[in-house]
């Protein structure tokens, strides 16, 4: 046995190193097991699957027939329809986020005092969340129905022309975004309400004594102190703006003439109507990267440099 000690020494050091790396995992793993398995199977594997699928070509039955390298990405990115879809998704975020933040902040400022009446109104603002996205989409479909919808009835009642909401471009976009904002504005309001209640009342009192009127108080104290809430609300609203597929799928089907042809809708169609798995996966990845880039940029722009304590 040549150099038994050296061999076993190396063995031990390797075992030590891996032991150090896995230190404490033993008992933790038992408790982490369910979450960890699900995380790997249904969050990480799909990403890996997407990366794998995006580099292949498939027959209509879903069998991989060839390796495509980055061709699928090239194809997706050079497709003018997908370019339009990406732009539309970004535009949805650009419109939805500021509108929802402004409305949510206004509602929070209006309802910040803890009175019974305010609590009731707050509950009503949040209520759309409890009905679920599908049902609220039904409600909007009815509300904006060209024939029996209340909105058209009101429009014609006050002498304005009726609008074919789902078959005209701008109204269809307005409908889809409006539904999204209407549904999510309650969350934004909650975030700002929490932020407002975290501001020590003495700080506002100090500012008032230091000579701040209502406007100065809002712009020099309240708004800056809500920075963290802003960050959180913006990220949440951005995420939500990438999740407005349901009304599109249910009502507009990407139309009219591509007005709601969001990237996520194209991904759905490419995968489940055209069965072009490779392209669909590469589109998924592109959109995901786009979303993460947008959120990273937002977090960077909205970085907060101060803390209370």
């Amino acid at each position: 046995m040549p150099h038994p000690t050296a061999a076993s020494g190396r063995d031990i050091s390797r075992r030590n190193r891996s032991a150090a790396f896995l230190e404490g995992w033993g008992p933790a793993l038992v408790f982490l097991c369910p979450a960890l398995v699900m995380l790997c199977l249904f969050k990480l594997w799909p990403i890996a699957e997407a990366i794998h699928t995006s580099t292949g070509t498939f027959d209509p039955g879903g069998q991989r027939i060839d390796t495509a390298g980055f061709d699928n990405f090239g194809f997706a990115l050079s497709d003018s329809r997908f370019q339009w879809g990406l732009w539309l998704s970004l535009a949805a975020a650009i419109v939805k986020v500021p509108v929802q933040l402004a409305l949510g902040l206004a509602a929070a400022l209006m309802l910040r005092a803890n009175t019974g009446g305010n609590a009731l109104v707050r509950a009503m603002v949040i209520s759309p969340m409890f009905f679920g996205l599908p049902v609220t989409t039904f409600v909007f479909a009815y509300l904006f129905d060209a024939n029996v919808g209340a909105i058209n009835a009101i429009l014609s009642g006050i002498g304005l022309p009726r609008v074919a909401w789902l078959s005209t471009e701008a109204p269809a976009q307005l409908l889809v975004l409006g539904l999204s904002v209407w549904r999510d504005v309650g969350v934004t309001m909650l975030v700002f309400l929490a932020g407002l209640s975290a501001i020590p009342p003495q700080i506002a009192a100090a500012a008032r004594l230091d000579g701040a009127g209502p406007l100065a108080l809002f712009f020099t104290i309240t708004l800056p102190l809500l920075a963290r809430s802003f960050q959180f609300a913006v990220v949440l609203a951005t995420l939500a703006s990438f999740q407005i597929l349901v009304p599109v799928l249910m009502l507009t089907k990407g139309g009219p003439t591509g007005a709601t042809d969001l990237a996520s809708f194209q991904i759905y169609e490419t995968a489940f109507s055209y069965f072009d798995l490779g392209t669909a996966s590469s589109m998924s990845l592109l959109l995901l990267v786009g979303l993460i880039v947008v959120i990273a940029l937002e977090l960077r722009w909205l970085a907060v440099k101060w803390t209370y304590e």
Binding site: P200, I203, A205, R208, L209, G213, I221, P224, L225
Partner: peptide, 20 residues
């Protein structure tokens, strides 16, 4: 009078410095 018109300065227990 409004607080800002009173020409009164106050030091608070928790100081109420503007954290930002």
């Amino acid at each position: 009078a409004e607080p800002r018109q009173r020409k009164i300065a106050m030091v608070f227990q928790n100081y109420a410095l503007y954290p930002h």
